[in-house]
Design a protein around this nucleic acid. Structure first.
Lengths: 159, 159
DNA sequence: CGTTCACTGGGCAATATGACCAGTGCAGTG
DNA sequence: CACTGCACTGGTCATATTGCCCAGTGAACG
C-alpha cells in the first residue's frame, strides 16, 4: 500500500518518460533490472499503477470545450441516472458527492453551442431535477500525479 | 485533427490492452505493422495521444478521499492563487471556470480529517475569498475516453 | 542461529523494435 | 486522360529488449 522511495522514483521516471522500458529504467536508477521488474509487478498488483493506457486529449479529438456539471437527483433515481450518464460518450467521468449537488460530472463538447446539446442530453432524463454547469476556461494545473507520488514516497521515508 | 476509423480502433485497442505493442496490434487490426506505426506517430504528433504515462490510483497510494472544491478568488489575484495551488501536491488538477466559482480543483486526502488539513492549505491563502467543497462518495463512471473516441471515429466515418 | 526475503549480476532464447525498401492502389490535379 | 503524391502492403535487416532462469549476498526477523 505505502510506497518507498524507489517505488516513487520508478513512478516518476515512468511518468516523465513513459517509453523507456525496464532495462533503461534500471540503468538510470542504478539498480538491477530484476528489481525494477519486481517493483513494477508489485505496484501493478497492488493497484497503485492501474495501467499504461494512452492519454487522449479530447481537444485534439475535436472536443475543445470542457465543463463540470453539478446535478440534483430525484430521490431514489440515482441508479437510473448513473446508467443514463454512462451511455453518453461526452460524459468523461461521474462522481456522487456530498454537498449541494448529488452528482458531479465532467463533460466535453465540440463547441459552446454543442455543449448545449450535450447538456440537454445529460439533463433530459427524468431523474434529474436540476443541473448547474461551469464551463472550463483554462486549465492551469492539468491532471497530475507526480507531486503526490513524491510526497507519498517522502512520507514513507520519514516514518 | 479528426480521426478515422482505424485511428479509433488503434486507440481503443491500446486503451484496453496497453502492453500489446505495435506488432501485435497490427496483427489484431489486420493491417501492416508500418501502418500502425505511422498512425501512432501521427496521433502522437497531432497531440491526440499525449503519452502513455502510468495511471496511478491515489487511493492505493494512501489518499482514498477525493473532493472537488469551488473557489472564489479576489479580483486580480488569479495568478497568485494558481501558483499557490500548483505547489500543493494534493491538488491533482485545477481549472478556471465560468459560473458561481472562479476556479475548481480536484483534491485528494488521506482521510476526511486529513481533508480538513488540505482544505486549510488550499484556502489559507490570501487571494481566496471563499471555498465550497464537495466530497466524492462514489465514482460510478471513472475517467474514460473510449466512448468518446468511438464516437469521434464514427463522426468522421459518416462525414 | 537459521530462515526468509529482496536485491544483485549474470546468461539465455525469443521477440519486438526502428529503419529501411520496392511495389500497389487510389484520389486529386493539370 | 496521364501524372503525381500519398498511404498502405509485405518484406528484410541489425539491434535492443523482454521474460525467464540461476546462484550468491546481505539484512531483517523469529
Amino acid at each position: 500500500m505505502a510506497i518507498d522511495h524507489l517505488d516513487g522514483r520508478i513512478i516518476v521516471l515512468l511518468a516523465r518518460e513513459p517509453r523507456i522500458g525496464v532495462l533503461e529504467m534500471s540503468r538510470r536508477l542504478g539498480v538491477a533490472r530484476g528489481t525494477v521488474q519486481a517493483r513494477l509487478d508489485r505496484l501493478q498488483s497492488n493497484g497503485v499503477i492501474r495501467g499504461f493506457g494512452p492519454q487522449v486529449d479530447p481537444a485534439a479529438l475535436g472536443y475543445p470545450v470542457t465543463a463540470f456539471a453539478t446535478l440534483q437527483i430525484r430521490q431514489g433515481q440515482g441508479a437510473d441516472v448513473r446508467a443514463h450518464l454512462a451511455t453518453v460518450p461526452e460524459v468523461l467521468e461521474l462522481h456522487t458527492t456530498t454537498g449541494t449537488g448529488d452528482m458531479m460530472c465532467r463533460l466535453v463538447a465540440r463547441s459552446n453551442a454543442d455543449l448545449q446539446r450535450v447538456i440537454d442530453l445529460v439533463v433530459g432524463f427524468d431523474g434529474i431535477v436540476r443541473a448547474s454547469t461551469a464551463i472550463v476556461m483554462e486549465n492551469p494545473v492539468p491532471l497530475r500525479i507526480i507531486p503526490l507520488v513524491e510526497q507519498a514516497a517522502e512520507d514513507r521515508a520519514n516514518s
